[in-house]
Design a protein around this nucleic acid. Structure first.
Lengths: 108, 108
DNA sequence: CAGATATATATCCAATTGGATATATTATAG
DNA sequence: CTATAATATATCCAATTGGATATATATCTG
């Protein structure tokens, strides 16, 4: 797992950008406006997201459209799966325990 | 989603700690040794992880055992699910496309 | 071509951060 | 109680970071 992904998402404005771009591509100006920040700040944060591979941009006339890239998030998802395994195991044990208790209840 | 979780995982040593603790609880000394770092550094990083809720500790004799907490990772997992939906939709469309191509192939 | 619009970049600054070292704290052993 | 082992904390330092402002660059409009 790449720490750059976590680093990029560790800043509230950038996390907001990623969540915002989930709805679809946006221009820098739109992003800056919707997140209530200055344009240079938005560009700077988008640069960080872009370096981390979380977004990509393409020119559109006067503007520049940014959109999400899925790869880093998919990588995160795969990384998490190792942990998911362990907490699902716990839930399974809980299920087993509850089932056992149910069984006893019926017998008594 | 809490940026503190991402912030805590944005540092390679701390990411390593979390992955290490996946195998089970460890003392500070063990963690420091396995990650080849000094004890004060390990304590400092563990503090950050603890503040982010990613680990918890309990005293054991002379030592202090650290273990993973699942909640922040589960929260990450839920946060990711919103994105998972969109990329699974893409895969579905790809499947549909492939199926359609298969169908045409058979007809011709 | 001239002005306007959108974006990127450069610079300055204060705050945060990670590493290293020294020291304080707590518990165990003898 | 004293010495030791394990850990936490304090301090110093260099590097990084986010915000703000100014400026450069590129594209569109007329």
């Amino acid at each position: 797992m790449n720490t750059a992904t976590f680093g990029a998402l560790a800043e509230p404005h950038r996390l907001g950008m990623v969540e915002l771009l989930r709805e679809g591509p946006l221009s820098v100006g739109d992003i800056a406006e919707r997140l209530a920040m200055g344009q240079p700040q938005a560009s700077k944060h988008l640069r960080v997201l872009s370096d981390a591979g979380l977004v990509e941009s393409q020119p559109a006339a006067n503007k520049r459209m940014y959109k999400l890239r899925q790869e880093p998030l998919q990588e995160m998802d795969e990384w998490l799966s190792a942990f998911r395994a362990s907490w699902e195991a716990r839930l399974d044990r809980l299920d087993a325990l509850l089932a056992e208790l149910q069984g006893k209840e019926r017998k008594e």
